[in-house]
Amino acid sequence: MIGFIRLADRLSGWFGKTFAWLILLMTFGTSYEVFVRYVLNAPTPWAFDMSFIMYGTLFLMAGAYTLSQGGHVRGDFVYRLWKPRTQAAVDLVLYLIFFFPGVLALIITGWKYSSRSWSYGEVSINSPAGVPIFQFKSVMVAAGLLLAIQGVAQIFRCVLCLRTGEWLRAEKDVEETEEALIHQREQELEQRAHS
């Protein structure tokens, strides 16, 4: 069970982080558009399509990664006061009945939707450049698959927590500046207490 959780975390993390680099492409690509459009008066016909395709791919593919890192916002003002076991019990039920219908729809209906788009080689309507978007529509299927795998891992996490009374956290990853600074401070205080 732990093995599967670690595998799912790594899988989600790998995809999320790899596609995260699209932000650099977006930055340079859109900056290039700004240059040719405003300085050379020769806008590209593809920059706009590229930017939303990269944005959409980035956030979809990062969905499972964010889930594994506990990054999806929760209204957790009550939740965080509970014992881990209570949290796990509630989460387990909600993952089973709330999480999977949508994720399966992403995979199954998303497949139907995008294969229709593949069948006529759909292109973007935003410009006459004809930037393909059928592959972009398939990203939701990929994102759904990653979420499904991560969702199973989250269920395992709940089961594990019900047994041990403790959450199995994801392995250490990048942290928000504020979290990193807070952790650093906690460690300092701990060290001071020990010495």
Binding site: N41, A42, P43, P45, N126, S127, P128
Partner: peptide, 25 residues
Amino acid sequence: QGIKYRTVGLAADLMQQMGMSVAQL
């Protein structure tokens, strides 16, 4: 020439052919 212009459909291809830069909205 080079003006960023909104239209739709084949009109977009037409205006692009004429040297405009076309967006469809």
